[in-house]
Design a protein around this nucleic acid. Structure first.
Lengths: 351, 351
DNA sequence: ATCTGGACATTAACCGTTTAACCCAACCAC
DNA sequence: GTGGTTGGGTTAAACGGTTAATGTCCAGAT
């Protein structure tokens, strides 16, 4: 803070400790601790408080979270473990989590790409940092069983979770079924499903829900080899280019993609192959990413409340951490079908 | 490990401490510590080692990183601070970082969206966790000045960094200039630049480099209001839709986007407006995202070696952490122009 | 003059590891 | 038998906070 000479002192971090602050303010470290954590309710006199605060400011003292955490046995950060951070859908989940955490807890992310170290080991290591809690996206079944712990842990996107497990899920089924109904009403008879390789069980759920309902509605669903890579436009595009001839022969008039990004790839390839969407081919996805409203044609999709999911998960986690009874909010975030132009076609003369 | 009754014991984590392990193996905690960290070179007898290891396994003991970190004054994780994790470009940076860190250091991510808490404060809090090192993407100028610390810190994507500062950068200039030359050669006279709002100085650099070279090549560059939101397809699409009429009147025949995702938005809007790319309008971007090769038309773009950037930054950081002299590798990762179909048009009869 | 109580501040124990210093038995050389 | 190793282990002092318990001082009541 002192301005000496011409230039402001750059805010160096001399790693001030509480005892350094203490001696500068001529008090004990205990007092410093009290002041630093704001527990001065009648335990520290007003002028001592300002003396200590001054010293803290002068020295740029920041309490050492490591020591603090060791002493109290608790911490102020939460780790979100996820296999794929870069998914735009996931960005919204993160936003929701941060909203719910507010300023009480810091959020740290850990990418645990499936493969690598078994997820379980990786989580174990993370736990060694003694976070206040853990949010685990798309947990493996093995992980969920093994982690029935006292640790505050919340799973998200874990359709396989036991009823008792602290998990927050998306109700993809509703949306997937609505989509099947929608396509059936449009008169489609043969529909294809373009899946993702990602192991996340949420994808398996989307597929199963759609395919089942499609059958029920009297359509012939075609399951397909999965797109090569993770959730990425390019892989879906190449995959679609490869299977389209066969699909065409099979009479496919609609393709449902596991995620909107895949659908973008399909739209582009369809365009370059001269396949008209939606007249010749209806295309749809899941997620309702921002671009889906802007694409040409705009994309019919199942909206998944990503942000809400994140918020609900974090709320639950905080409740767990603080020992409060879970808010018992709806454990299933509802999905919603958004009908746009990409399925606007009329096939077989149906409505 | 004990199998009692019918079901395997789920791998609970009773938070075993070293002393619990110690008493189970009838040794001192010091010995446990030695065994746990593998420093048994002739200091611990073979059978004691296996006794302790057995106890560790039985109790699922994992050393408490908090205590360990406090005792040693060092840690085994690195925090990567970034404003926007969801950018697919950034996903590649992360991949590079993880490659370079290997298994020696864990990577944790912290999203510090500009706005919120001033970046500087936020980094200060992060430092309180005593990470082994910090990687800061797109640091504010203020942050860089204030953090001239003893802490191992590496900035990435920090074009404004002092020569001395530990920073790893992209040489966007080369690619941006190549792009300007390319467009000039194609005969374009009036080109527009669609920027991003993101404060990251790397964007400022892209714009300046392109615009300067464009002038130099005799073209009339048009600067533009920036796209509303961060790096997102949708915002670029709406922005383009809004400015296109004016651009058209001004005779714009080429638009350069700050990132490929913006370009996707432009391509879509152009398509729906009936503007033919590249015949009427050349479109290009930066980043060479995977989809850029698949889009229709395929996108001319400046490839930025994201993965390399991440790897170089992490390598440098590790060198700093371990007190080794920096490998003095090339501090500037070269960019490269990739010419595809979206700028294949011929304007004004030029070659 | 003694006792009670409140307001402030300090002491000291503790959190779970690490690690330097120390201890002890056994073995060897002289 | 004395003295030096050496392998194999333990003790105890940190690390930097937190917090319950303890003091000290002094005002006011008895």
């Amino acid at each position: 803070m002192a301005i000496h000479g011409t230039s402001e002192t750059p805010a160096r971090f001399p790693r001030a400790t509480a005892s350094m602050v203490a001696s500068r303010a001529s008090v004990s470290v205990a007092t410093v601790s009290l002041v630093a954590s704001g527990k001065t309710d009648g335990r520290v006199s007003a002028d001592t408080v300002i003396r200590v605060q001054q010293a803290i400011a002068d020295l740029h003292y920041v309490v050492n979270r490591v020591a603090s955490s060791l002493a109290t046995g608790s911490s102020n950060f939460v780790i979100l473990v996820a296999p794929d951070i870069s998914n735009p859908f996931f960005a919204r989940v993160i936003a929701g989590v941060r909203e719910a955490l507010g300023s009480s807890y810091q959020l740290l992310l850990s990418v645990t790409d499936s493969g690598q170290m078994p997820q379980l080991e990786s989580v174990r290591e993370l736990l060694a940092f003694r976070p206040a809690g853990l949010l685990v996206d798309a947990p493996s079944a093995r992980l969920m069983q093994s982690l029935v712990v006292d640790e505050p842990i919340v799973f998200l996107d874990a359709p396989g979770a036991d009823a008792g497990a602290p998990a927050v899920n998306l109700d993809v089924v509703r949306g997937a079924e609505a989509l099947a109904v929608h396509l059936a009403e449009r008169g489609h008879r043969t529909v294809a499903y373009l899946d993702s390789v990602t192991a996340a069980s949420t994808f398996a759920l989307r597929r199963r829900a759609f395919l089942a309902k499609a059958q029920e509605c009297g359509m012939s669903p075609i399951e397909t080899p999965r797109a090569r890579s993770t959730i990425d436009v390019g892989s879906a595009a190449t995959e679609f280019a490869k299977v389209w001839p066969a699909w065409q022969r099979a009479g496919v008039t609609a393709v449902v993609c596991a995620t909107d990004t895949h659908a973008y790839g399909v739209l582009q390839v369809a365009h370059s192959l001269g396949v008209r969407v939606p007249e010749q081919l209806a295309v749809s996805g899941f997620d309702d990413l921002p671009f889906s409203a802007m694409s040409h044609p705009s994309l019919t999709t199942v909206e998944l409340p990503a942000r809400k999911l994140g918020r609900a998960a974090a709320d639950l986690l905080v409740a767990l951490i603080e020992g409060r009874a879970p808010d018992s909010g709806p454990p299933l975030m509802p999905s919603r079908l958004i009908i746009r132009d990409s399925t606007g076609g009329f096939v077989n003369g149906a409505a």
